[in-house]
Nucleic acid binder design. Structure first.
Length: 470
DNA sequence: TTTTGAGTTGTTCGA
DNA sequence: GTCGAACAACTCAAA
């Protein structure tokens, strides 16, 4: 058994508990060398998630120090950096937790092959999902394209245990030099927004775990009823933490299962949402093109517009449609958006504004601190109609009707829209402090007139659907 | 192989 | 105000 250091390459698993890779590493009793790399793939993320990643890395570094370890930070192509570390430290193995987005898979496949060719151990672990995407199969041995059968297949399937956090990591004889996180300037693209969005972040593993506990002790009971109402704080908000792996999905699953067995109403609905996260990765693995091209090829003829002036107003939360603008402003101010609002802004962009879903996806990738490649690829294509789901052609959300149903008292809209209010909410005002000055927005200004008449926009979208193969 | 039942989240219209 | 039907036809998954 080797006593040489083992490099633990952390990526989106910035936690100590529910860490199969870390638990197995501690078992070896070898010196452990945790590293985080700013490689080109990691650097290629949007402004807000990249900034938020920096907070996660900093918190994780502090957590490791509590175990007598350090997080070594390095920049550069992953393979080059890892090889350099191997040379510097005498390590003979590199371990990591698998990711499933195409860019990470391509990188990791190359790294694994190259390290092995060099005689090093390169080993990847499960941990990002409940089940690896290839472990769930239909009766015919294929993959699922429909959620309900997928859910039935995993709902009662056993999930691997979530290992406890280690108490101490064996240090190497000498720690390698680490770069300074501040030098990475991960928040550089955030400009004015960072100070505002920072107020809404819940960073790090202990905070994520507290959030899970608070949710399961309270709001989960009414989750099924209120999760669709953006003005009611009834969701877990864990997507932010799951994205960076600040909490493990298996730990969340087991905790929710316990609440289900205790008879907590709403627990089943919550588990189902975890099922959707799982399903999105299932799809991304089996049809990686979902991230960039229409999942249903017959949508290639849909006359979507590329980026345009209406889309620009959509990004600015200035469409003149209050529910839509509230959602977009919520995202700009808090880094997340309520799921109901995501559907509405997505439908509005792709249907009423006839703009390609990729334009919306790109904006979400820039603004969401809970940005997830699988969930967003699936979600955008679902709402656009080009994704996996039956009968989508008539799915044109009416933002006014949705407001009536899901924000009847206007609490959500008031929270994020300042114009026309004598006493605007703090968050509504903070939007104007966060946006670039070049947008020229003013909370005292008039609320804009609608970009498009709702009935006209709907009719145009339905006509476009009919014409998509013409 | 064929058949069958079902498919996250909607809207509108007319009774 | 509420309710059911129509909005098309297709694909998926399992029997």
């Amino acid at each position: 058994m080797s006593d040489r250091p083992l490099i633990l390459w952390f990526r989106r698993d910035l936690r100590l508990g529910d860490q199969p890779m870390l638990a197995a590493a501690v078992e070896t009793r070898r010196p452990l060398l945790p590293v985080f790399l700013l490689d080109p793939e990691t650097a290629a993320t949007g402004a807000a998630p990249k900034w938020r990643l920096g907070l996660a890395v900093a918190a994780f570094g502090r957590a490791l120090e509590g175990l007598g370890a350090r997080l070594t930070l390095r920049r550069g192509p992953a393979l080059d950096v890892l090889r350099g570390l191997v040379t510097e430290t005498g390590a003979d193995a590199v371990w990591w937790t698998r990711l499933h987005d195409p860019a990470s898979v391509a990188r990791d496949t190359g790294v694994k092959a190259a390290l092995k060719a060099q005689g090093l151990e390169a080993r990847s672990f499960a941990g990002h999902l409940l089940h690896e995407p290839w472990e769930v199969e239909t009766g015919q041995g294929g993959f699922y394209r429909v959620f309900t059968p997928f859910w039935r297949a995993i709902r009662d399937r056993g999930v691997a245990d979530a290992p406890q956090a280690p108490v101490r990591l064996r240090p190497p004889d000498r720690w390698p030099v680490s770069e300074d996180l501040a030098d990475w300037r991960l928040g550089a693209a955030m400009q004015l927004g960072a100070a505002v969005v920072a107020r809404h972040q819940t960073v790090g593993e202990p905070a994520a775990r507290a959030r899970l506990r608070a949710f399961l002790d309270g709001p989960v009971a009414r989750y099924a009823e209120v999760r669709d109402f953006p003005g009611v704080p009834g969701t877990s908000r864990l997507s932010e933490n799951l994205t960076y792996g600040e909490i493990g999905i298996r730990e969340v699953w087991h905790a929710a299962m316990r609440r289900r067995s205790e008879g907590a109403p709403g627990a089943e609905s919550f588990l189902r949402e975890l099922g959707w996260r799982e399903f999105s990765y299932h799809l991304l693995h089996h049809t990686p093109q979902i991230a960039s091209a229409n999942w249903k090829a017959d949508w290639d003829g849909f006359p979507w517009r590329d980026d345009n002036r209406d889309a620009e107003r959509w990004r600015q939360g200035m469409t003149g449609e209050p529910f839509v603008d509230a959602g977009l402003r919520e995202m700009y101010v808090t880094g997340t958006m309520h799921n109901r609002a995501r559907m509405i802004v997505g439908s509005y962009l792709t249907k009423h504004l006839l703009t390609h879903w990729r334009v919306g996806l790109d904006w979400f990738a820039d603004c969401l601190t809970d940005w997830d490649p699988a969930a967003n690829a699936m979600g955008w294509q679902w709402v656009a109609g080009s994704g996996p789901d039956a009968a989508p052609y008539f799915r044109v959300f009416n933002p006014a009707g949705q407001a009536e149903r899901f924000d009847a008292d206007g609490a959500y809209r008031r929270r994020f829209i300042a114009e026309g209010s004598r006493q605007p909410a703090a968050e509504a005002l903070s939007f104007f402090a966060a946006v670039p000055r070049s947008w020229g927005l003013d909370p005292a200004g008039p609320y804009p007139a609608p970009v498009v008449d709702l009935a006209e926009g709907r009719a145009r979208a339905l006509a476009a659907y009919g014409a998509r193969n013409a």
